[in-house]
């Protein structure tokens, strides 16, 4: 999927992935790739700024640990983030439902 098209929905996807529990960036990106069946192919480095933005906005919280001698930052969803995820998920379902209805009603092959 083209990066620019995904860009507007990345926050929702990241929140959804973290709804299952705390994860570090590598795991979040791996999950994004796996769940989308490798459809979302953003450069991995560009996902971190989005995680930082959500962290800064209070939708995520993060903490540092040391794993195998490396510092690792783990993200988890906050209550505010969970609320935002619910709202965005609902908005997305309404939107896709509406698009689907319109697409389903199009009879362009029959149009002269």
């Amino acid at each position: 999927m083209r990066g620019q098209a995904l860009k507007g929905h990345l926050d929702l996807l990241l929140l959804a992935i973290l709804a299952d529990g705390a994860k570090h960036g590598y795991a979040v990106i791996d999950e994004l790739r796996t769940r989308s069946d490798e459809t979302f192919d953003l450069p991995e480095g560009t996902v971190y700024p989005a995680l930082h933005r959500l962290d800064k906005a209070g939708l995520l919280a993060s903490e540092w640990t040391v794993v195998q001698g490396r510092r690792r930052r783990t993200y988890r969803l906050t209550d505010r983030g969970r609320g935002a995820l619910g709202e965005q998920r609902h908005a997305w379902q309404v939107f896709t439902g509406a698009v689907q209805s319109v697409l389903g009603g199009v009879s362009w092959p029959d149009t002269p």
Binding site: G25, I29, G45, Y48, R71, R72
Partner: peptide, 8 residues
């Protein structure tokens, strides 16, 4: 930021 990239 660099530590996080390094870990990744």
């Amino acid at each position: 930021v660099v530590s996080e990239m390094e870990d990744h």
